[in-house]
Simulated assay, not measured.
Amino acid sequence: MSENQKPAPTILLTGASGVVGQAVLARMTEHTVVCLTHNTPVPGHRTVRVRGDLTRPFFGLDRSSYQELADRIDVVVHCAAVTGFSIDAEQTHELNVRGTENVLAFARQAQAPLQHVSTAFVARRDLAVAGYGSARPEVYLDSKRVAEQAVLASGVPVNIVRPSVVIGNSVTGRISQFQGLHTIAGALLKNTLPMLPLEPASRIDFVPQDLVADVIAHLVRTGTTGGEYWVTGGRAAPTAGRIVELGLALGRSLGLSPDTPRFVSHDMVDRLIRPVFIDALPRAQRRRFDDMLAMTALFNAVEPFPSTYGHVPGVTPFSAQNLEDAFTASMRHYAQAKRLVRPSEVAA
């Protein structure tokens, strides 16, 4: 390193074992990354693990250890969050709100800027919430809105990063944990999706995990703060009809025999389908159906999300074709991981 070259900042990363956190960790090879976690993070170059609890004051550390950690850290990247729709409200609030408040207190103590990962779905304020059973997306969204309010009022130098649904790596499709969109598209490949409660023209907004990580990595490297970045497909996001076409084409290329699902309205589900077919299912199957209904409700919107990540230096926006290719890669990986086809067929 030359005399004029500054050392790479040391980063505190929360949620290192999650989908976004793992992708961020893979992008930070020149940094020392301290992962605050209960679980073992994905191994990375120059990675240090600190066992802590985001929901407790001082992360559950003694005062001396907390101060020592604060003295080491130059930048905080906060990815940890409850993202499931069936997690109870108290647990969701504890991590998403109280955890964020504790991260803010740490950033203030460390005099470090914060990269806060939220969600683009905070914009879905017209979400109808009736009829999802155990799936309560409004609990998750409310917690993320309250967390954002705390971040913006904190006085800490901060960027807010708002991705839409995060899928796997744009090239390999690999991901640490399959998400709700994988489950829906996977049901299409398995031919267990006879209906889809969506308008065919609804945009299915998703972004690959490496794109989100690129945005965060560039914000860390440039040291900029004070921005709100919508990492979304926006107007390039494919429609539900196009997603079904891609899924059918992939499934048939893999030797599967998926049928075209019928698009139905949420009103039809509530009036006709749920009373006759869904209420009689075992609890686990009802829960999966409710989760699917909640996920599709998030996509039933007229206006596309804003998409502003193209303003980050060095990050090129994904085109509609890029997003379609990333979706296909994710579903190929899903098909292989779930052993729907032989690996040789997936590779082809």
Rank of each mutant, 00 (worst) to 15 (best):
I73A: 05
T328R: 15
R332L: 10
Q111H: 14
F263H: 08
H38C: 07
Y334A: 02
P200I: 11
Q5N: 12
S253I: 03
F305L: 00
A16P: 09
S257C: 06
V156G: 09
G241M: 04
G247C: 08
V166R: 01
V97C: 09
N159C: 11
Q109R: 15
D259I: 02
H31Y: 08
L12P: 10
T296F: 01
H78V: 05
I73H: 03
L141F: 13
D53A: 08
F59Y: 04
N322Y: 01
Q336A: 14
S176L: 12
V156K: 09
A326D: 04
L127D: 07
D267K: 05
Y66N: 11
A320Y: 02
K338M: 12
I160R: 09
E345T: 14
T316G: 02
D62E: 13
D270Q: 14
A130H: 13
G234Q: 01
S154G: 10
I175E: 01
R339W: 02
T260Y: 01
A107K: 09
L246V: 05
L189S: 09
V156E: 05
A329T: 02
I175K: 03
Y309G: 01
Q5E: 15
Q91R: 15
E30C: 05
T40K: 13
D267P: 00
V20G: 01
Q177V: 08
G84L: 09
H182D: 09
V33A: 04
P57A: 09
V158Y: 13
T37M: 10
C35L: 06
V215Y: 00
T29K: 15
A70D: 08
Q115C: 11
V24K: 07
Y334I: 01
T328G: 06
M28Q: 14
V34F: 06
A81L: 09
V75R: 05
R27W: 00
G241C: 05
A110G: 08
R342W: 02
P304K: 03
I278A: 14
A237G: 05
A135R: 06
T55Y: 11
E30D: 15
R203N: 05
D71K: 10
F59A: 09
V207H: 00
P200F: 04
D74N: 14
V19D: 00
V171M: 10
H78F: 01
V77R: 02
N191P: 10
A150K: 14
V269F: 10
A348C: 10
R288V: 02
F58K: 14
Y132A: 08
M292S: 13
Y132L: 13
A26M: 10
A280L: 14
R339K: 15
Y66T: 06
F121H: 12
E138K: 07
G314Y: 06
R262N: 07
T328D: 04
D267Y: 00
L323D: 00
L298V: 06
P275L: 04
P258W: 00
P317Y: 01
S2A: 13
T225P: 03
P304M: 01
G226R: 02
S253P: 03
V231K: 00
R49W: 15
T32A: 10
V75M: 01
P43F: 06
T239H: 01
D71Q: 12
T10C: 15
H333D: 08
R288L: 08
L12N: 07
G223A: 07
L25Q: 06
R49M: 13
A16D: 01
L36G: 07
M195N: 09
T225A: 10
A294E: 11
T119F: 01
M295V: 10
G133E: 03
F277H: 11
V166P: 03
K144L: 11
A70K: 10
